[in-house]
Amino acid sequence: MKLIPLPSRHFSSCSSSLFAAAMACTLLAASVAAAGERWSAEKANEWYGKQPWLVGCNFSPNTAINQLEMWQAETFDPETIDRELGWAASIGMNTVRVFLHDVPYQDDAEGFFKRIDQFLDICAKHKIRPMVVLFDGVWDPDPQSGPQRRPRLGVHNSGWVQGPGRVILADPKKQDALKGYVTAVIKRYGQDERVLAWDLFNEPDNPNSNSYGPLELKNKDEAAERLVRKSFEWAREVNPSQPLTVGVWRGPEWDAHDKLNLVHKAALELSDVISFHNYDGPEILNGRIAQLRKTGRPLICTEFLARGNGSTWEAVLPIFKKEKIGCYCWGLVDGKTNTKYPWPTWAMPELGEPKPWHHEIFHTDGKPYSDAEVKFIKGLTGAK
């Protein structure tokens, strides 16, 4: 067959189209290749460089004793959420860390998502972007849907629940059934600009021996590590635009790989941005920061503030600002969680007002626990 030469302008047009198509295929292939992979340190730092200095709190409304009471239809409380997030914004907070739970999703996925949508709209109204937590390894290991218990007088977080519970965490097959929850949530919000980041599992290996009783999960580090790795795998399949993290929170040296337990190794190997907890004063905090800086990735402290333990706003907030480390105190408003009481009250309740408050910033009427403390916070965040 004789080939007929094309006019030069036609050839130019075709070659441009072919080039564009080739480039599109290349970009698509790159995108597909990127799915399922940990962000590079360069990508993580580029993302972090676009964020303001992140200052916030671990948030649940004062009317909720735990994650279930926050998200179940009967007790979801948007009016209180709106009011309290307004108080957070008034002191310069631009983010909150909020805990979801698999049980409300399993009970009523459509309603669960509608309530999350409403929550995100309220956050956006106050210019607050949440870090969303999917699983939690702390406190009551046997979550049950429906009406929740009343707070125990003078006991820190007496009604907070783990998610998943011990029965699921101990069984690999039951763990695998959680994939639908993880992927559904991240598919729905993985490209949503209202969401800042994903914290897949809070303190997965926390032994919580005082809340387990005689049925303590002896191999919790091993069981939790499996779900941590699976959660990263499932989330990567969805390929959200936001970074993924699981925080490190205990152990002597976070830069000594051979001294880390299984969960901490997985967290540091797989997280896009490195998150951590520190409830100690400046000396220990500075040491932790030095250890984690070696990762070359952005750092975010997802839990601090234990006034009686030296972790006060005045002691640590200037460090976070100087180092440009995002930070979330535990708690905002005194309420049903009772986290103004210190951790040891699980063993021995404390009657009366604790001195000082362990966590929290405001009374239920919006009055600050400490006027001087709020003034100090606003001075560093630039709130008016």
Rank of each mutant, 00 (worst) to 15 (best):
V133F: 11
G190M: 04
C123E: 13
D221T: 04
P5E: 05
M70K: 13
P141I: 08
I65C: 13
C327F: 13
D136Y: 13
L380N: 08
P240N: 02
R297G: 05
V185R: 01
G180A: 04
F276A: 15
Q175N: 11
K173V: 12
L100N: 01
R166A: 15
P141F: 10
E69R: 06
A41K: 06
P104A: 02
D77I: 13
P368Y: 14
M23L: 09
I91V: 13
L380E: 09
W330D: 09
Q148M: 11
L260R: 06
F376L: 11
V132W: 12
W313Q: 05
T337D: 13
F19M: 01
A35G: 04
W53D: 08
A347V: 08
W53N: 07
I4D: 04
M23N: 00
W53F: 13
S8N: 03
D192R: 06
I274L: 12
G335Y: 13
E222N: 02
R129D: 06
R250K: 14
R150E: 15
T345S: 14
E37I: 02
I65K: 09
A177I: 09
P282R: 13
L27G: 02
H156R: 11
R194M: 05
H101N: 11
R115F: 07
A315W: 04
D221E: 08
N239M: 02
K259Q: 07
H358M: 12
I325G: 10
I116E: 07
K43G: 01
K259A: 00
S40R: 11
V132H: 10
D258I: 01
S145C: 00
G159W: 09
A184H: 00
T337K: 09
F135T: 12
G190A: 00
L380R: 04
G379E: 09
W71D: 05
K322I: 00
D258G: 03
D117R: 09
A20L: 03
T245H: 00
A109L: 04
A21L: 03
E79N: 05
E237M: 00
Q118W: 05
L262R: 15
L100T: 08
G86F: 02
K173N: 10
A383C: 04
G154Y: 14
V273P: 13
A29P: 00
